Amino acid sequence: MTGTLPGLGWSVTEPAGMHHLVSLAQGPQRDSLGRDGQLYIEESSDVCQQARSITAWQQLYDQLKPGQFQGSLAETWLDGIQCFEEHTSHALRQSCMVWPGSVWVGIPASSEHFARIGTTTIEADTVAIRGGGLEFELGTPDNFQIMGLVLARSELESYTSILQGESLHLDNTMVLHVGAERMRKFTHFMRAMLQVAGNGSGQLLEQVCRKQLRHELLEGFIDLIDDARPNRQNIRRVESAWQAVAKTREFVLDRSGEPTSIVELCEYLGMSRRTLQNIFHQTLDICPLAYLKAIRLNAVRRELLAPYSQYDSVQQAAAALGFWHMSQFSQDFKKLFGELPSASLARRSIVSAISNRSL
């Protein structure tokens, strides 16, 4: 059984959620979603739609490279445990937050190019772990796949306490080396679970099957991270470089009513133009000016799509982010997103309908 699943946790009433995340008061109740054992598939050709597709999260995606975006999400629930696989075609900078009291586990299913959480690389044989209720940043490359598992922190700690004789110590953000064979075994198990959820047999609609699968999933995850080694890659130089990139985005969006120059950015970050250029080429393989423009274009896109935006026209939204040459703006917008800004604005009513269903 398949269907479309809107992202229940994404803010649709607060303008503060358009370019920044807002704190979640609570997560979904264990039995309130009514979607257990079914597979929900969301296909998207829009980066903003992709960010909203996952249930009960808050996310903002910034597309950094030009071209028509394609994304997909396959998701199922097992009595309070969320399992999914996501594919994204283009390199993204993501702001993410899962519900309070939970733990998210990110399992890369792409081996050619690495992602990062904060300043730490998520390699092919590592898993990322992040506590709920706190914003974190993901950087993902082109053509990226990731599997996700979200569960109550208390339940995970209880399981590990019983199985291992001691509670699992989880930092708010961890990247653990688990080994290629363990990774292969666990990703195969999760894909089999998603396939069964979507094959129409109805097996996972039976409570006893879901209960058995939950036990196997939790035990499999504990086996996955047993004796795992923390990733110690946080070299100070790399860490400070990614911090500069993150600060650049916030500087631009916090001053959305004012233009941002490279001079102002260098002064704000306390570094030379050459250092700034080196940082962006090393981390994102683009120049600072291209990054600044991409962040502003993504912000305009969200304004055009958001039902609660204060801007009713393309020109108003573009001007608010400092775009003064409308012809060049339209060209840059289409190059990055694959459609004209007027087409994005025309789809606002569609996005509004999807958002209203998620309330």
Rank of each mutant, 00 (worst) to 15 (best):
Q282W: 11
P230H: 10
I286W: 09
R229F: 06
R296F: 01
A228W: 04
H177E: 12
L176N: 12
Q207H: 12
R214T: 02
A299Y: 00
E239N: 11
F280S: 05
R274E: 02
Y291P: 15
P230F: 10
P259S: 07
K211V: 09
I262M: 12
Q243F: 05
R236N: 07
L213R: 01
Q243Y: 07
V178Q: 06
G179R: 11
G270E: 03
D285S: 15
I286P: 05
A294S: 15
V245C: 12
E239I: 08
L253S: 07
A290L: 10
M183T: 04
V196E: 03
R249V: 00
E264C: 03
R229M: 10
V300R: 03
C209T: 02
T248K: 06
L217A: 08
L276F: 04
A294W: 08
S240Y: 14
R296M: 00
R296E: 00
F251K: 01
L218S: 10
Q195W: 04
Q195R: 09
V245A: 06
R301V: 00
L218C: 14
R210A: 11
T260W: 01
T187L: 11
G179Y: 07
D285M: 13
F251G: 00
L217S: 07
R210H: 03
G198Y: 08
Y268F: 14
L205M: 10
L204R: 00
S272C: 06
V252I: 15
R302M: 01
R182T: 08
V252E: 01
V252C: 04
D226Q: 14
N231K: 08
C287K: 15
L218P: 06
I295A: 02
N298G: 12
R273K: 14
A228V: 06
Y291K: 03
F251D: 02
A241I: 10
A241F: 14
R182Q: 12
V238R: 07
F221G: 08
C287Q: 14
L224F: 09
P230C: 09
H188S: 13
A244T: 13
Q195N: 10
Y291F: 15
R255C: 00
L292Y: 06
A246P: 05
V175T: 12
R273F: 00
A192S: 14
E181H: 13
S256H: 15
G202P: 07
L297K: 15
N234H: 13
E267G: 04
D227V: 05
D285L: 12
R302Y: 00
L176R: 08
G200N: 08
G202H: 02
A180H: 13
M193E: 03
A180Y: 06
E250R: 15
T173R: 13
I279Q: 01
R302P: 02
L217D: 02
L284E: 00
P230M: 10
Q282I: 03
R249Y: 00
M190T: 05
T173V: 13
A192L: 14
A228Y: 04
